[in-house]
Structure formats: structure tokens, C-alpha cells
């Protein structure tokens, strides 16, 4: 079901922990009723190891976002089960699931979604302060560390309106990383960027997975992301296609 492209598989796992981080079993999700009924995800099973970069590809409308939302605890599946870090997350109640996301999950979306009124630094601090309840001093220190890693320390005082698309997406990554998550779910994080910046973003996500042991699930359209993935899933019409990469090659051409 997964393809390993010609990748250097130098996956650094956190010592002692290796193995399955998240699994989805027989997941289905339909929207609408009667004539309007769409099966967005149709009996899909998926498994991702800790510290892996998993890439999910497929044509538009194939159910990638829906599957990502189900795996990340945002959207309840009609059928199936998601087990993350040993927890059946859809068996938890709303509050417990929210708490699970608070402790373990971060998100990056295509549209950055940064507060227009806050500086790059504040976008990160707000997550640390509101999420972990740490002091503003500590939050600032943490934020600056992350921004430094992302090469954004000099721009920490700038607001989204003064940042380029690539910089904004890196700030969004910073916001995702400041809580040191176990999972990072990225829905088309590069689609709004040119490849030079998109590559930067993917590269950061990759080192996040490999250096920090964060499990990263990326939904992407661009075939140039393929070499950065440890594992690739391909969806079509809500179904997982497991044909040894033929579909991927057909859709995206030969992986570079």
C-alpha cells in the first residue's frame, strides 16, 4: 500500500520509540443525503509510523482532506476506527478528544490562517500561552527558538501583511511546532507557494519528523514533494489505490 521512493531512509527515531503512531481502519465517510450523497472516503485503512513523513496524493475531490480530518480528530467518520498513540480517538468524548489534540496534534493549512493583527512571534506565543498555559516570558523564549530554526528571527516583529507567502507558511509551521506535537497534519501546505518556497516548507516538515520524531502527514498535489516522503498514499474517488505506485506515476509522471 505504501511506496518507498528512492529516498535515503535515514529515519531517526527517538530512542526506544519506534513503530506505529497512528492507524486508521476501514474508514468511511459520506456527505449529504439521497441524490446529493457523496462518498468522500470509502473503506480506507492507513498506517503511519512515528517520525515518518507520509504523503497523501490524489486528484482533487478524492477525499484527501476528509481523510486527514478524520485521522486528526476533527471530523467523525461514519465507519471505522482511528487509533493514535494507542488511543481510539473517536471513542473519546468531545472534550477528551479536544484535549488529545491539544497535547498531540498540530495543523498547517494552505491558507496560512495567521492573525492579521499579530506579529510572527505572537502567532507562536499565543499557542504556547493559551495551549500550555506557560508564562509570556517562556512563550517568547520558545517562540524565538523556533523562529530562529525557521530563519525568521529577524522577521519576528513583522505581521502577516509584511511577510511573503513562504514566510507566512513558515510562521504557520512555527505555530504548529511550538507545542512540540506528536502529529503534524498539513493540508496542501505548499499549494499557494512557488516550488522554491514549497520545498523549504517540505524540508522543514521533513526534519521535524526525522529530528523530533513527529509524525507528519502531508496532503500535496505537487509531484516534487514525492522524494521527501517516507511513505506515499494515493486516493482516488475516496478509495486508497495500492498498485505499487502505478497510479502515482500515471497522474504525476515519473518521480524525479
Amino acid at each position: 500500500m505504501s511506496i518507498s521512493p528512492n529516498l535515503k531512509s535515514n529515519i531517526k527515531l527517538r530512542s526506544g520509540v519506534s513503530g506505529i503512531s497512528i492507524t486508521g481502519k476501514n474508514i468511511s465517510k459520506t456527505f449529504g443525503e439521497g441524490d446529493m450523497k457523496t462518498t468522500a472516503v470509502n473503506d480506507v485503512s492507513i498506517e503511519i509510523k512515528q517520525g515518518e513523513v507520509a504523503l497523501m496524493m490524489g486528484p482533487s475531490g478524492s477525499g484527501k482532506t476528509t481523510l486527514l480530518a478524520i485521522l486528526s480528530g476533527l471530523l467523525k467518520p461514519d465507519n471505522g476506527k482511528v487509533v493514535a498513540l494507542g488511543q481510539d480517538i473517536w471513542a473519546l468524548n468531545e472534550r477528551e478528544r479536544e484535549n488529545f489534540r491539544l497535547k498531540h496534534c498540530s495543523f498547517i493549512f494552505q491558507g496560512y490562517n495567521l492573525f492579521a493583527s499579530l506579529t510572527a512571534r505572537q502567532q507562536l506565543e499565543i499557542v504556547a500561552q493559551w495551549g500550555d498555559g506557560i508564562s509570556s516570558r517562556e512563550a517568547r523564549k520558545k517562540a524565538d527558538e523556533i523562529l530562529d530554526v525557521l530563519g525568521l528571527l529577524k522577521k519576528a516583529h513583522l505581521r502577516p501583511g509584511e511577510l511573503s507567502g513562504g514566510e507566512k507558511q513558515r510562521v504557520a509551521i512555527g505555530r504548529a511546532l511550538i507545542k512540540n506535537p506528536d502529529f503534524c497534519f498539513a493540508d496542501e501546505p505548499t499549494s499557494a507557494l512557488d516550488w522554491a518556497h514549497g520545498e523549504q516548507v517540505i524540508d522543514i516538515l521533513r526534519s521535524t519528523a526525522h529530528d523530533r520524531g513527529c509524525t507528519v502527514l502531508i496532503v500535496a498535489h505537487d509531484a516534487r514533494v514525492i522524494p521527501y516522503a517516507d511513505k506515499i498514499f494515493y486516493l482516488e474517488d475516496g478509495k486508497m489505490i495500492d498498485d505499487g505506485g502505478k497510479s502515482i506515476h500515471k497522474t504525476y509522471g515519473k518521480a524525479p
Binding site: 476533527l74 484535549n99 489534540r101 491539544l102 496534534c105 498540530s106 495543523f107 490562517n113 499557542v127 495551549g131
Partner: peptide, 19 residues
């Protein structure tokens, strides 16, 4: 209302609504 999506990201990350 102008920042609904930004707040939604925070909600996705589990930050409680009361904040």
C-alpha cells in the same frame, strides 16, 4: 468574525474556546 479561521486553527490544535 474577521478572525474566525485563525481561531479555528487554534481550536483544531485543541486550545479551549474560553481562551
Amino acid at each position: 468574525a474577521a478572525s474566525l479561521r485563525e481561531f479555528a486553527v487554534l481550536r483544531a490544535m485543541g486550545i479551549p474556546r474560553w481562551r
